[in-house]
Amino acid sequence: MAALVTAPNLPDHDGFYAELLAAHKGLTEAESAAMNARLVLILANHVGDREALREALALARKAGG
């Protein structure tokens, strides 16, 4: 792990968490899945670092057990 920031980096993380839930409010499970897919693509483009994204994909998969 080198490119991906895994130490705390997000100001007011509780506030962001609430915004994330609020953004999904009223959506069905399928609509939420679609929204998450769009969000992943938007954030990936913003990150723009293929190595960091590769590490993020590996971490997400690993944490799922």
Binding site: A33, A34, A37, R38, V40, L41, I42, N45
Partner: peptide, 22 residues
């Protein structure tokens, strides 16, 4: 999920330049 991501790209393409290339 293949369909979900494909549709996500198409939906974003109308709004964000980065998605058009995808």
């Amino acid at each position: 999920i293949e369909r979900t991501f494909r549709d996500a790209v198409l939906a974003l393409a109308a709004h964000a330049p980065f998605a058009r290339g995808m």
